[in-house]
Design a protein around this nucleic acid. Sequence first.
DNA 1: ATCATATTGTTCTCCTTGTCACAATATAAA
DNA 2: TTTATATTGTGACAAGGAGAACAATATGAT
Lengths: 210, 210
Amino acid sequence: MIDRIQRLTAYRRSLERLKAAGILRVTSGLLAEASGTSASVVRKDFSVFGLQGKRRGGYGISEVLEGISTILEGVSRQGVVLVGCGNLGQALLRYAGFSGDGLAITAGFDTDPARINRRGKPPILPPGEMSRVISETGATIAIIAVPDFAAQETLNRLAELGIRGILNFAPVHLHAPAGTHVRNVNLEMELEGVAWLASLPAGAPDKEDA
Amino acid sequence: MIDRIQRLTAYRRSLERLKAAGILRVTSGLLAEASGTSASVVRKDFSVFGLQGKRRGGYGISEVLEGISTILEGVSRQGVVLVGCGNLGQALLRYAGFSGDGLAITAGFDTDPARINRRGKPPILPPGEMSRVISETGATIAIIAVPDFAAQETLNRLAELGIRGILNFAPVHLHAPAGTHVRNVNLEMELEGVAWLASLPAGAPDKEDA
DNA sequence: ATCATATTGTTCTCCTTGTCACAATATAAA
DNA sequence: TTTATATTGTGACAAGGAGAACAATATGAT
Ligand SMILES: NC(=O)c1ccc[n+]([C@@H]2O[C@H](COP(=O)([O-])OP(=O)(O)OC[C@H]3O[C@@H](n4cnc5c(N)ncnc54)[C@H](O)[C@@H]3O)[C@@H](O)[C@H]2O)c1
Ligand SMILES: NC(=O)c1ccc[n+]([C@@H]2O[C@H](COP(=O)([O-])OP(=O)(O)OC[C@H]3O[C@@H](n4cnc5c(N)ncnc54)[C@H](O)[C@@H]3O)[C@@H](O)[C@H]2O)c1
């Protein structure tokens, strides 16, 4: 189910590109090609979410985009904070693409005084202000980009403060209390996966994608 | 199958931590707890890869680590280049964790002259030198961290130069020639997934993880 | 030495998810 | 209008992986 939800994000991106190119309708096959899945998956996804097309002319891009926005309405109306503004954290903090989904990072936190910057576009604050900022902004999502040894304590703190969803970049498994959901992005694992695919004999069949 | 391979990386990390803590043997349950899977999965993974334990005392950490290294031997002996040294690219370039797996980034490339730095720890070079560097270092893996509109042409170029595996961070689906494997990391999709989990009613059952 | 028990290795089942197939149907052409 | 056809919507099917269960067995205790 979460895969379907996540694919909506990919569909939206592809549809916006097509719309910007002046196209009004898409077939499941065309959208599949653009977003990297299969026509069957597109149709079933749309079917599950009640997005309807026309038996011949495909799906109306504007209508589908509107439908996706409606579905993700409540999902994307959540504040996001980021903990750990180092190499990776800063990159995420500066990234504009998230706000396209409505999910904008409202503040960053870091223990290193040298990283504090209260006037930043998203400000970077000391962790002592997490409690205040989270309750003031009503943030419910957090990104963890601290070193691995600090990740679990960071999660504990965030969970106490009412954070309900966490995207964790530290390459460790975190233990979360019931009701707090953790999703891991482990780039080492991803790179290793690519390396394995690349090491396969040339004639091997394809079965990847993410 | 690729999931099993990728989990090996997670197992290795957990085992190294346990080893550093002075522990000599692990049970499937303990390792599962540490690396975020289940005991059955650990046992089946190890079984598939021929990593054996003892019917009672669990698995010997050193032996398993050695086994994993052997399995990933050929996989990790590949050079990696990075194209697009912006916010995200720089973070990846500076990250030391990859070399722990043997996969070290040997060079970065960027079109922006201001980013060129030939004396960097991994140097940042103009794309014109890609051909030379890739053939000299024998790199077979690439990371794409360029803006979305430049991703496809970057892939085409890399594929021509013999790159066999690509980790793509641009939020677009790329078309690769046969024999070149692409794996996408779409952080927008990941964050949206977390947001969806967080928006679920509190009592909902768990079914996540990555 | 014998026994009790913890833990592996493997099989089997279930569940999820993508693929296939095809009937339903709207559109365009003749 | 009638017919041909492209494309959706959905039901059935298959593949794969995770989880559960259990027999095999090595270890430690008595
Ligand atoms: N940089 C990458 O490309 C990359 C790749 C894969 C994984 N990761 C993982 O992402 C995480 C961050 O990586 P990085 O390269 O940005 O590391 P980094 O050391 O550059 O940044 C970590 C930041 O976290 C801050 N910090 C430390 N403890 C903290 C705490 N308790 N609360 C708040 N802030 C704290 C530090 O001051 C620092 O600024 C690490 O777990 C790393 O393993 C990074
Ligand atoms: N920064 C993030 O946190 C983040 C998050 C999600 C996705 N992404 C994706 O990752 C990619 C990079 O993001 P970013 O924030 O680093 O962007 P960025 O603009 O900071 O960096 C892009 C870099 O690529 C270089 N570049 C452009 N065209 C090039 C080409 N043809 N060859 C070589 N280099 C080229 C640019 O000079 C620039 O330095 C984008 O596709 C973005 O959508 C980034």
